[in-house]
Design a protein around this nucleic acid. Structure first.
Lengths: 212, 212
DNA sequence: ACCTGAACACCGTTCAAGT
DNA sequence: ACCTGAACACCGTTCAAGT
């Protein structure tokens, strides 16, 4: 639809992604993105619909960065490679995590990666309905583990505004197991835990569908 | 610290939670919550620090609604009950999901539930470090599955702003497995898939720590 | 000590107008 | 047809002032 500015939807999304990576989600405003592109804020609307439409386009760019794995080796290895690629891209765009959690892959560029996952499972003989279940579970796994890792869910330091935490002595007295175990959680290695949980899931799933 | 208004931090958080449930996260503004309590916006600041502090307090209220399970039966049953309780509360406050994803349990009221989970595993003989790993994995599982379920991640209808989706014919031609499998995903039963994935994880985890 | 009003520096989006 | 400026109805937060 546009002409005079030479703008395109992906160009707008790319400017927004750069802003997202550099300054965070709350800095991705229609006005800031427009300023970055040297146009008036209202110019963006025909290209992206509204702010949430822009954020969806940004999410599609992130999905498009996930490279489909080569289709060699067993399904277990291929899916592991695929899931590590998801983790790699999400860690490269940590501020995009809330967007990935609410916009699924939709464009041709983004769906190539999804196709690879479905194809791997179907070719190894898993029925279509079971592939759907596995895909849903792996999507949840990606989002959940990335959230825990990226937000620093268990990092002690984060106490964002509000009241100070309750007296540690009181916590220790009332919740002895929290006192014992909680300090161990932030010391876990993110990559190790990712592989650990993924292997549990993949092993259990593929065992149910072993040919014969 | 306050006096003349009779306000307390939990009272402010309760007003904010009511607004969150009724109108969504973007309606939970300092000005709206203050209006609900018939005070000036600036009155809230001593009670909650800033907006994110208020949202953290709201999150603690949500965690506090998760009832600790009775400590009877095996760890598998107790953890299953506990995880279903997490799901129940998150579905009761769907708009709180992004908050749960960035604020962990912190208050005495919220930690009682966490203590129950740790205690169950420790009492059944799992070493503390392994309990930490299991807790981290279950937190990720809760957040991931709740995200997929609550946001309607796979529902076809959601196309939030932006361009129309690509031509379905083109998608089917280029991505035959997407065309075959993707329509099956939204038909899955959320509760069934929750239990399915949870059982996979718990079975695999507890098998590694069976006494003897 | 506790609360507030005005002000500052922002938002997304509508709408009428410009080229 | 494409782009824009002004305006509307909001934000969070700072600060000086009131009681």
């Amino acid at each position: 639809m546009p002409k005079r500015t030479g703008l395109t939807t992906p160009a707008v999304a790319r400017a927004a992604l750069a802003l997202l990576d550099a300054e965070g989600l709350e800095s991705v405003t229609m006005r800031r993105v427009a300023a970055e592109l040297d146009v008036s804020p209202m110019t963006l609307y025909p290209y992206v619909g509204d702010r949430e439409g822009l954020l969806d386009e940004v999410t599609q760019l992130v999905y498009a960065e996930m490279a489909a794995p080569a289709d060699e080796g067993g399904p277990r290895e291929t899916l592991r490679t695929l899931m590590r690629e998801v983790r790699r891209v999400l860690l490269a765009h940590p501020n995009a995590l809330p967007l990935v959690a609410r916009h699924r892959p939709r464009t041709v560029e983004a769906l190539a990666f999804v196709e690879a996952g479905y194809r791997t499972l179907r070719r190894s003989g898993v029925p279509a309905l079971e592939v759907a279940r596995c895909y849903r579970a792996l999507a949840a796994y990606s989002i959940g583990t990335a959230t825990v890792e990226i937000t620093g869910y268990f990092d002690a330091a984060r106490s964002p505004g509000g009241r100070p935490p309750p007296d540690p002595g009181e916590v220790a007295a009332r919740f002895p197991h929290v006192a014992e175990v909680a300090p161990l959680v932030p010391g876990l290695d993110d990559a190790d835990e990712f592989d650990y949980g993924l292997d549990l899931t993949l092993d259990a799933f593929l065992a149910r569908h072993r040919p014969g």
